[in-house]
């Protein structure tokens, strides 16, 4: 079974995003970029399935600017086998990304597609579900644990009330939540080796997909700012404050 993992290049999660003064977006000039943390978890899960002998090949795909190659190389260094860059300067929305991944899946026929649950830049939490819809297959979102047996995958999902388990026929789409695994660090030799792993570059047009955004961003603004208040000296002063608030 082949596994397809879409990975996105995003602002590094340690960086505090700043809104551009002209209100057109978030300033990404000279900002550290990394693989979306959830996508690292997705790649790791694919590698573990391969290590268990349940997967034969891991193909990673990224839709975005040429620099997304770096993200793909990181995934190859972790242990993916092959990469596809679908180069576009458009901010591809989840729906367009899903259409491209669907087209790639039609060619590659993976048994599983593992995405991150959410990209930490647009915070959409849509793409995996959309891929599943377009492929007409099952979706195991917010996965906390998965197990592949024969022609099915059992997925334990993180839901609002706790955990839930569903069983899906393969092929299926999984979206990785934080506690699915802890991604490995790539070793130096594997980083070197990743440089010679195959990376193909395509365009959205190769898959007949139009990446023009459907949502027009009219404005991006700062959220209401909070500022620090007072520090109290001791617990008694805190109790007094709570009493003022009417909670104690």
């Amino acid at each position: 079974m082949k596994i397809l993992v879409p990975v996105k290049r995003v602002i590094d999660y340690n960086v505090k995003p700043r809104v551009k003064a002209d209100g057109t977006g978030v300033d990404l000039a000279n900002v550290k970029m990394s693989m979306n943390p959830f996508d690292e978890i997705a790649v790791e899960e694919a590698i573990r399935l391969k290590e268990k002998g349940l997967a034969s090949e891991i193909v990673v795909i990224s839709i975005g600017p040429a620099k997304s190659q770096e993200t793909l190389r990181s995934a190859l260094a972790m242990g993916a086998d092959r990469a596809i860059l679908v180069a576009t300067e458009d901010q591809a929305e989840p729906l367009a990304v899903a259409k491209i991944v669907k087209a790639v899946a039609d060619e590659e026929t993976p048994g599983l597609i593992i995405t991150g649950k959410q990209a930490i830049d647009d915070d959409s939490n849509q793409t995996g579900q959309m891929i599943a819809a377009l492929l007409g297959c099952g979706q195991g979102t917010f996965a906390n644990a998965i197990s592949v047996e024969g022609e099915a995958v059992t997925v334990t999902r993180e839901i609002d009330g706790g955990l839930e388990t569903v069983k899906l026929a393969l092929p299926a789409v999984i979206t990785a939540d934080l506690r699915l695994n802890e991604p490995r660090y790539a070793s130096l030799p594997s980083i070197m080796k990743a440089k010679s792993k195959p990376l193909t570059t395509k365009s959205p047009a190769d898959y007949g997909v139009d990446t023009t955004p459907r949502l027009k961003t009219l404005k991006v603004s700062e959220p209401p700012m909070r500022s620090g208040g007072v520090k109290v000296a001791d617990v008694d002063a805190l109790v007094a404050k709570l009493a003022e608030l009417g909670v104690a």
Partner: peptide
């Protein structure tokens, strides 16, 4: 925007060929 809503809505959006607006 609960875990159920987040699970279902994007699947609806893709079936309708609509770009979802989240949260």
């Amino acid at each position: 925007a609960t875990t159920t809503g987040k699970n279902i809505a994007p699947r609806v959006a893709a079936l309708m060929d609509v770009a979802q607006i989240s949260e």
